[in-house]
Design a protein around this nucleic acid. Sequence first.
DNA 1: TCGACGATTAGCTAATCATCGAAATGATGT
DNA 2: ACATCATTTCGATGATTAGCTAATCGTCGA
Lengths: 104, 104
Amino acid sequence: MSTVFKALSDPTRRKVLELLRQRPMSAGEIAAHFDVSKPTMSAHFAVLREADLVASEKQGKTVIYQIKMSVLEDALLGFASMFGWELKEGASPPPPPADKEVTE
Amino acid sequence: MSTVFKALSDPTRRKVLELLRQRPMSAGEIAAHFDVSKPTMSAHFAVLREADLVASEKQGKTVIYQIKMSVLEDALLGFASMFGWELKEGASPPPPPADKEVTE
DNA sequence: TCGACGATTAGCTAATCATCGAAATGATGT
DNA sequence: ACATCATTTCGATGATTAGCTAATCGTCGA
């Protein structure tokens, strides 16, 4: 749980997850959305992998990342339930996220 | 939002919030639940204050901390809504939390 | 005023983090 | 075999973090 929140404490990583909500993407495709070096992105991926928030699969020379929604949901739910909240499926289907800024 | 998740990424701080869910408490009363020095606890409080997750009020020589549920809720909700989730009032009223371990 | 008490600040160490450029790895195509 | 491309690993740097002890601040009661 700590590792999940730690992963979520960085705006770049939150936006990576937001991107992966649309569909699985290669490391390079994700990296193209950010203005940091590839090693830095790779490190962010490692943190997300460590938190088990993403799965990675090597396909030829690219690596495809995929979000693990259930892990994210369980962590959020596990914490929210401590405070008497439940996590409900939202009324609106997740809007196709246009390229957006992340809240600092 | 980053500051909130950062604050939540530490088990001690999560447990502090869990304690404060019962009722407002003094710094010392909270600290009594943990096996770290008071200065360390004070630093944790500072992080929680920085994230605006708690309010502090000086009463005589003690400082009373109070959780700011709405801030916690807004942060959680704000993030969850990116993934098509809503935060619902739980069916079960927050159980009087016995002294419990925090998930690492 | 003095001493005790609750809490924070100061000052330090060790560990972790985000970031980079350069180099290594691994797969593909010529 | 070789060049190329995608990604990760290595090594370094500066910033931040959690933790401690010792010192300080503010308040209360004797």
